[in-house]
């Protein structure tokens, strides 16, 4: 379920940016001076984001169902097995997040106490990314059927606001992915192998068991 997310998210982002190409409305700027535009032509054209709206929609709206099914399967699995306890941070863990982040950035020498299987920052960002998936799904449905699901549209502050949240979620997914990969690489081969296989081999013979990552 973890690995299914990767190709699914890549497809959702790729098709999503083909949709975004058709109406590129957001940029950071001051008055008339735009200093940052998402996806300028030099990104859009080589990656094939331009002039593919119909194909982008077809892929996006088909693979969205797989993304939803995978999310539901993951949620059901963690709820059933009780694995959610490893991921959802406690209030105490939340307070340790700044210290953990500073430590990882090399700004704080002392390593924070582990909150359990994952550290506080991991718990918070993993829970956050799952919630982000839920927000992306809910705003996606709001944009897909805004008349039939007008309640959802209202919840997200209107149609354009839902579109902005949906787009922001896609950018946050990319940022998460970058940090996630850097952190896994830093933690060494052991973690990477566990992440790839879905199982972690513990060194202690008596405790040998497999744990789904």
């Amino acid at each position: 379920m973890h690995w299914v997310n990767f190709p699914l998210l890549v497809i959702m982002l790729w098709s999503g940016f083909r949709i975004y190409w058709a109406e590129q409305e957001w940029a950071f700027g001051i008055l008339e001076w735009e200093w940052f535009q998402f996806f300028p032509d030099w990104i859009n054209e080589p990656l094939g984001f331009d002039r593919k709206l119909a194909r982008g929609l077809a892929f996006h709206l088909s693979f969205a169902w797989l993304f939803v099914l995978n999310g539901l399967a993951y949620t059901a699995y963690t709820a059933w097995t009780g694995e959610w306890r490893k991921v959802v941070p406690s209030m105490r863990a939340l307070k340790r997040v700044p210290a953990t982040v500073l430590h990882d950035l090399g700004l704080r020498r002392e390593a924070p106490a582990k909150a359990g299987y994952y550290n506080a920052a991991q718990q918070t960002s993993y829970t956050g990314i799952i919630m982000l998936g839920a927000v992306a799904t809910a705003t996606g449905f709001a944009l897909f059927k805004p008349t039939q699901l007008s309640v959802l549209v209202t919840m997200f502050g209107g149609y354009s606001s839902a579109r902005l949240i949906h787009f922001t979620a896609s950018i946050v997914f990319i940022l998460f992915f970058v940090v996630h990969i850097v952190q896994v690489a830093r933690s060494g081969r052991h973690t990477f192998m566990a992440m790839v296989s879905g199982y972690e081999l513990l060194t202690d013979e008596r405790d040998r068991e497999s744990t789904v990552v």
Binding site: I19, Y20, E23, L53, L57, P146
Partner: peptide, 10 residues
Amino acid sequence: IEHKCIEGWS
């Protein structure tokens, strides 16, 4: 009503 374009604007 709010008119919606398939390109994304409304």
